[in-house]
Design a protein around this nucleic acid. Structure first.
Lengths: 247, 247
DNA sequence: CGGGCAAGGATTGTCGACAATCCTCAGCAG
DNA sequence: CTGCTGAGGATTGTCGACAATCCTTGCCCG
């Protein structure tokens, strides 16, 4: 009955002790993958016994994994009521984006001048190609999907590059945590608007990215930070559109 | 043998089911208190069985509490090796402070104009009294302790007021999480330098706080943010002094 | 005398059973 | 027909025992 009665079979129980001390981790990662891939949707209940059967292990490590997910902020656990994939509201998106903006701007400032120019130039070239906005809205469906996936890929590469180069592991970890939340936001938004994907956003986003990369190449801290702020602010508008207004 | 064989007796096991569904929370809060009060020190091992006996409950909720603490970032869990109170290095302090600075500045900008002026004026008055620096270094020991506690109290009040007034619950929660880390940093620093407490820091800190409050009263976003940045930057110097250099 | 090795103890990680709690829904009074 | 009540089932939370793993210590061999 659950949405996750898929063909996934976790072969953790092959021989006893195989994953000893790693079970929690396995479950956390698998559930994250389920959430981001859309197999688990916001608001869905995570029933321990079911998960225990699916992962072929006892409820204990499952519970611990849910506690971990609660710490990440992607799941809510109500005492005696169980865990629920967090439901995302427009307010949530706005709030998290404000925090993300502060952190990404800090990261981009720190990273400025520390990033390998070759990689930056590579990204810049990719963004330049997409910034023109050629081919908007008259492609085949598969092509659209691919374009979006490529855009996501590039987005990830840029933000990861900045996070990894900022020289602050704690900040990098926080951004990674936030990225998890974002991916679920993004997927929710995508899901709600899959009938009319906002293709105009793609070249716009590429231009925003390009502005960041060029500022980084020029070593202009101020401009890079402002470009990042603009980029994230425009992301908020896109992601929060069509979401329920309040908690 | 443990440092926490104190007189604390947790009366959770009075009658079965009293704390049903709340045990993890109880343990988390109690352990946090132990860490911040110095009863548990950085590097100390958290042995499940011992904690289970102390809290009069089974190992399961204890383990879950440790997983929660790991998520907060105050404890490290190595698979099959157990949980250890995180050892803080100067690099850690610097890194966390950079993140905190970004968030606190964002919060103070958001909160500007939204805070009750009466409470601000109250705080301002308290800081003005302390900013003069009267009575530095020639007080009785108990008086010194009290002065420090009052300073901490005021510090908490200001930062909490800002966090609560910024209108962003997510940001507020992140700041609260970070505050937990900070309290442990602060206490570690205090512990390492208890022989020569840096009393000069107190009036300096009061002046920094005062600058923030006055900017908030004036509704000057820019100035408030800059004052906050300065305040946190000078905190880093104080806290990271005397800590081990690297991980 | 130093280094590798194995047995032992200590500790963690997992399990399945049971108690406590919440939710649903049928039955009944108003 | 509506609202309350309470029994039943489903689910969570807790427990104590056991298996797996790691660390220490003492021994043996080179």
């Amino acid at each position: 009955m659950s949405a996750v009665t898929t063909t996934n079979r976790q072969t953790t129980g092959d021989r006893p002790g195989f994953d000893h001390g790693q079970r929690r981790k396995v479950v956390v990662e698998s559930l994250l993958a389920d959430i981001f891939s859309g197999r688990l949707k916001a608001g869905e209940r995570l029933i321990i016994r079911g998960l225990a059967e699916r992962f072929e292990m006892s409820p204990t490590p499952i519970r611990e994994a849910l506690v971990t997910l609660e710490g990440i902020g992607i799941v809510d656990i109500a005492p005696n009521c169980g865990a629920v994939v967090r439901r995302v509201t427009a307010t949530d998106v706005r709030e998290v984006c404000q925090v993300r903006r502060a952190l990404e701007c800090a990261a981009v400032k720190l990273a400025c001048g520390k990033i390998d120019p070759v990689q930056l130039e590579e990204l810049a070239e990719a963004f330049r190609q997409r910034a023109a906005g050629n081919g908007t809205g008259r492609q085949a469906n598969g092509s659209v999907r691919r374009a979006i996936n490529q855009a996501r890929e590039l987005d990830s590469r840029l933000h990861d590059l900045i996070a990894d180069s900022c020289g602050n592991r704690f900040l990098s970890r926080e951004l990674a945590r936030m990225k998890l939340l974002f991916r679920s936001f993004r997927d929710v938004a995508w899901d709600r608007r899959k009938d009319r994907p906002d293709l105009l956003r793609l070249p716009e986003e590429a231009r925003e990215h390009l502005a960041i990369v060029e500022a980084l190449l020029a070593g202009d801290t101020q401009t890079a930070s402002r470009a990042m702020a603009r980029h994230i602010r425009s992301g908020v508008k896109y992601w929060s559109r069509g979401l329920p207004g309040q908690t």
